[in-house]
């Protein structure tokens, strides 16, 4: 056990954890931030995606000891006071079905749009293939990403 100070959604949190504990479980079980979801635990579904220094990362594959001073942003902290344009687009395009994958989808899309502000369909496919949606909300995710990209210009 060791003590880790990590910055999540702008707030520094202190947790006692084993060095190898994935950030996913530290967020969910130690910090009560349950917006980030478990879907596979092996880096294959992307439900657990968060931002680490603005880049998309799978929290189930990121040991708490590797977070260091990188800033963690989870779905709870993406928007701040206002909704992030992606969150707005997700609501307007009625994207969620069961909703369980959507935190991961939105976080991945946020990192993607920062890098690629004018995405083509092929670029969206490539970036978003990492995040599985069991309910098949992909067509609406595509539309919502395009709408958010426009809004963010």
């Amino acid at each position: 056990m060791a003590t880790y100070k990590i910055k999540v959604n702008g707030i520094t949190k202190t947790v006692e954890a084993e060095a190898e504990m994935p950030l996913l479980w530290a967020l969910r079980d130690l910090m009560g931030l349950t917006g980030t979801k478990y879907g596979c635990g092996i880096g294959s579904c992307g439900s657990c995606t968060v931002l680490l220094n603005g880049e998309s990362a799978r929290s189930c594959q990121t040991a708490i000891s590797d977070v260091g001073d990188k800033e963690v942003v989870t779905i709870e902290g993406l928007g701040g006071k206002e909704l992030h344009p992606l969150q707005k687009a997700w609501v307007e395009h009625d994207v969620p079905q069961c909703g369980f994958c959507q935190a991961g989808q939105i976080m991945a899309a946020a990192a993607f749009l920062k890098e690629t502000p004018n995405p083509t369909d092929a670029e969206i496919d490539e970036a978003m293939n990492a995040i599985l949606c069991r309910c098949g909300t992909y067509p609406r995710i595509r539309e919502a990403i395009k709408a958010a990209a426009k809004e963010m210009k």
Binding site: T34, G35, T74, I75, E76, W90, V91, P96, G99, I106
Partner: peptide, 18 residues
């Protein structure tokens, strides 16, 4: 639109696992 959308996209929606 789904009544739960806002909760889902802000991480506030509570599933059993949460």
């Amino acid at each position: 639109n789904r009544v739960d959308n806002l909760d889902v996209v802000t991480g506030k929606a509570v599933y059993g696992a949460d």
